[in-house]
């Protein structure tokens, strides 16, 4: 009973705005683990219909990726093509957000407060953003061509609900995978299923923020 309830709740939260008016819909729970079986968070699982390109409805308001305490928040954001993203700076120091990724190159020079303009992500793909001032700041925006996606939580689970019946390609991406893990699957109307996906993670090469001076030292 509980997983079903959670699934429904997650579906409401994540996909409420993108949910098409479908009649027969199933749901899939994806469990992302590393080869040792440990749950992997911040993985994005998406279902691309193989029959026809789905209709995308970007949200009316821009999605926000804020900068707080000299970090991007959230670290991983999944959006559909055509979504606009704001980069509000909630710090007292300036930031200089940029992306050199192919799906979207942009540069927001030194600023404080709200970002001067929202950025439109009009091509699918993974966009990695950074800050020119703070080496340790990075975040990822996964721009998808399908409205059926979810991000795994700390338990490694991503729930995709209200997915119309049909054949799909499941794609699981994570900042530390070399290539997304894909597999095809059928989703039956009102059907529920669990897909366990094992991902091989590369070393975490994120730059760690320097500890406050006075600690650490010469190593």
């Amino acid at each position: 009973m509980k997983p079903v309830l959670l699934t429904a709740l997650a579906a409401l939260l994540c996909c409420a705005t993108t949910l098409p008016a479908a009649t027969a819909a199933g749901s899939v729970r994806v469990e992302v683990n590393d080869p040792k079986g440990a749950p992997v968070a911040d993985a994005v699982a998406s279902l691309m219909p193989l029959a026809a390109a789905p209709e995308l409805t970007p949200p009316a308001e821009p999605v926000q990726i804020s900068q707080q305490d000299e970090e991007f928040s959230p670290y991983v954001t999944a959006i559909v093509v055509g979504t606009r993203v704001d980069f509000p700076n909630r710090d007292k120091v300036q930031h200089h957000v940029y992306s050199l990724s192919k799906p979207k190159r942009f540069d927001i020079p030194l600023y404080k407060g709200e970002s001067p303009e929202s950025v439109l992500f009009d091509r699918p793909g993974v966009v990695t953003i950074g800050c020119n001032l703070h080496d340790w700041m990075s975040a990822h925006i996964v721009v998808l061509g399908t409205p059926y996606f979810a991000k795994s939580g700390s338990d490694g689970r991503a729930s995709l609900a209200t997915v119309p019946a049909g054949r799909y390609r499941l794609e699981v991406w994570h900042p530390r995978v070399a290539a997304p893990v894909t597999r095809e699957l059928d989703i039956a109307a009102s059907g529920t299923g669990t897909q366990v996906v094992s991902v091989t993670l590369r070393p975490d090469r994120r730059i760690r923020r320097a500890p406050e001076s006075g600690a650490g030292g010469y190593k």
């Binding site: 120091v93 001032l133 703070h134 340790w136 923020r209 320097a210």
Partner: peptide
């Protein structure tokens, strides 16, 4: 960026936060 910070209004907090990158 550092140069532009220095050449600009010399926002001490921002410069300090960037210096941390250099320190790293």
């Amino acid at each position: 960026v550092f140069i532009s910070l220095i050449a600009g209004e010399q926002d001490a907090a921002t410069i300090a936060s960037m210096l941390r990158s250099f320190q790293l």
